[in-house]
Design a protein around this nucleic acid. Structure first.
Lengths: 233, 233
DNA sequence: GATTGGGTATGGTCTGACCATACTGTGGTC
DNA sequence: GACCACAGTATGGTCAGACCATACCCAATC
């Protein structure tokens, strides 16, 4: 069967080829968020592959948060380039936490690093604190641990947003997302949440006052209060 | 997932169902790295879906770096649970940089945050510096900008590894990976790399001496030397 | 003008087939 | 008994073709 002629050795799977082609097209054609990719059938014909392979490539791109597929017809249908790294990062962290290839302590230490950095940066830039204040108000109105954690998460994500670095903010959101359940348990274990609230007030005031060092300290002590068992200085 | 019974409208795609089932199985059966998932055909039959849907789920898991598929037969064949978040993170960053939904400045600022933290942590823990020294030696022997960057990357990744936090180390590797091309250009622009080398020596010595503050300062100044145009204090 | 209904392009799913790969077991050979 | 060649088989990878649900588009109708 072989030996009768040159048969190209297949080193990459077809869908990986498709991925490379799409990525090349994005780079060369300068495609950006909001632009549409060709339809699956069309792409399959253009690249000379089956629709299955195109679909597997689409699944990868969707997993990475760069495309979003919509059924139906019209300008909004089809595969549209997006920019949603958050859910991709969340899925990644959640699954690896589930596989025990990451430990909660590592996640919380990473949070510590990011939040200190973000708080100091936000304070130095004298960032707008209205989103922080809104989240704080939500925490006061929360009736359950779940609700409390929801608004607590909003506060910390707003802090990361205030750093002005979208990558850091995306990582922060993913970290919070992947540890949501753990946070709820931590709040329930803690019982009294008043100290967490006053910590938040202190962080907000430090950012508002433009005091990076105090903001970083406040964040650090806040995490120590929230996760006394796992926190490492 | 809510158990409200039959729902006339299908809210989740089949492959997402498969994903949830696999994730549940991982959690409930306590599967861990090295364990094998059922074969695609078998999984399809068990879950009552087509093999296509199972394959799309597999592609997602592979993209997220939690499974690795091997063809053939035997104990190593099939879908094996792994833990490779690095390539997943790299792909994610690379694609989003290509889409211009992230800017290089944000990546470098994130690196700054991580490296300061890692250097200080490694110094505080008086981590082993042999990997750092090895990378340093590699930089001296490098004949091209590409080679230099390769060993430079190894140095910085070793620093992140020395922090003892696998999540931070994985993020670091991905950051370096996604900005490899940019780093090569930066080195070529710089011309003289001796200052980068002496920066590394300074970092290594600070870590070896167990001086966290000096280590953080050394890292900070090093990044300022390497990326003078993009660095923000 | 507003409404209605068919046409159609899209992604989502399924079926069944075939290929390349790589182990497994069997049988023969030395 | 040790070794080797070869058929068997389970695996992922790919393809082709079909059908469905969705949601827009547009022409016919009221």
């Amino acid at each position: 069967m072989d030996g009768t002629g040159w048969r190209p050795i297949k080193r990459t799977r077809t869908f990986e080829d498709v991925l490379a082609q799409i990525e090349r097209r994005i780079a060369e054609d300068g495609l950006t968020v909001g632009d549409r990719l060709p339809a699956e059938r069309q792409l399959a014909e253009q690249l000379g592959v089956s629709r299955s392979s195109v679909r597997e490539a689409m699944r990868v791109l969707e997993t990475l948060g760069v495309v979003s597929s919509q059924v139906g017809r019209g300008p909004d249908a089809g595969a549209v380039l997006t920019s949603r790294p958050d859910s991709a990062l969340s899925d990644l962290l959640r699954l690896h936490l589930g596989l025990a290839s990451l430990e909660m302590r590592e996640v919380i230490d990473t949070r510590h690093m990011i939040e200190q950095w973000a708080a100091a940066g936000a304070a130095a830039a004298r960032a707008d604190t209205s989103a922080l204040a809104a989240a704080l108000a939500g925490m006061d109105a929360a009736g359950s641990a779940e609700e409390f954690v929801e608004h607590d998460t909003a506060f910390h994500c707003a802090l990361a947003d205030a750093s002005g670095n979208r990558l850091v903010a995306a990582i922060m959101r993913s970290l919070r997302d992947s540890m949501r359940r753990y946070s709820v348990e931590a709040v329930q274990r803690l019982g009294d949440t008043s100290i967490l609230r006053s910590d938040h007030v202190r962080i907000l005031e430090a950012v508002g006052a433009g005091d990076p060092d105090e903001a970083a300290r406040a964040v650090s002590e806040h995490l120590a209060h929230a996760y006394p068992s796992l926190f490492t200085a």
